[in-house]
Design a protein around this nucleic acid. Structure first.
Ligand code: MN
Ligand code: MN
Ligand code: ZN
Ligand code: ZN
Lengths: 139, 139
DNA sequence: TCCTAAATGCAAGTCATTCTCATTAAATTA
DNA sequence: TAATTTAATGAGAATGACTTGCATTTAGGA
């Protein structure tokens, strides 16, 4: 993934914080919270302030570089590099593991809703909460 | 709706705060936030502290007397008296209107997930965000 | 190189929610 | 009914995720 090219493509200035956050998100294999990103810096000295991280994430959200996930069971938002298609999730309330689901089973349902209610649709969120295989055994 | 009977039924002590919150939620025709409940008291003097309201709501959640809705676009939770079936929602990001959807289009999908991933399922949330009919005209 | 708007760092602020702890009240028991 | 036990409440402080104000820096274009 070419970070600089991506930023230029999205008309975002190529700054150190943006490159760093992009790199951290790209190397992570799942969702990260703003705080995860903050603490993924080895030495606090060369870290980024949380305010900057939030601002960077906002700019990424606007340009659809990242996607945001609101967790029901914890009061935080998680971020990851946006993949081509929006995804739905299977979330373990014990270990916070997030499994991506490729399919979207509500596409035609959504079309019906637009029709029926005259809604201009922004997005939908569909997430399943439960206890994963491993955590069930561990309990 | 018989508030006292409901509380007794759920093994909750019949206290003034609980009866009040129950009544307010029952009379409201949609979702309310903790703050909505707080400010629905005419005179601040005979109001309930927010801490109590949150505690009452927690006890109601545990007994499934109320349902909770997490809004993606605002950082708050909304509550309403639980109806028989869980519901999904069509939410206007302009006026915060919430339309209840009776159908659940993901039941069989959920069954498949349990099967496939060995998840013990708690709940799922499915909400559609957009701009309602009226707000589209108003903009 | 110079200029300007945009981005940053830091600190302080916000706001929903939770917690602490002393006091009160509900339900159980005697 | 009175005493006992235990959960619930009120008041306010604390928390924690996120946001904002403002002075300073920097990116990218002129
Ligand atoms: Mn979908
Ligand atoms: Mn459903
Ligand atoms: Zn798990
Ligand atoms: Zn609307």
């Amino acid at each position: 993934m070419n970070y600089e090219a991506l930023l230029i493509n999205k008309n975002l200035k190529k700054t150190f914080p943006r490159l760093k956050v992009l790199e951290i998100l790209d190397r992570a294999d799942g969702f990260l919270s703003a705080d995860d990103i903050h603490s993924s810096f080895k030495d606090e000295a060369h870290s980024l302030p949380l305010s900057t991280i939030y601002r960077v994430l906002d700019s990424f959200l606007k340009e659809d570089i990242v996607h945001e996930l609101n967790l029901d069971h914890r009061n935080i938002k998680l971020y990851e590099i946006a993949h081509k298609h929006h995804a739905h999730h299977l979330i373990c309330v014990e270990c916070d593991k997030v499994i991506h689901l490729k399919e979207c089973p509500v596409h035609s349902f959504e079309e019906d809703l637009k029709e029926t209610y005259g809604f201009k649709m922004n997005h939908h969120s569909l997430d399943f909460y439960g206890v994963c295989d491993q955590c069930q055994k561990a309990l």
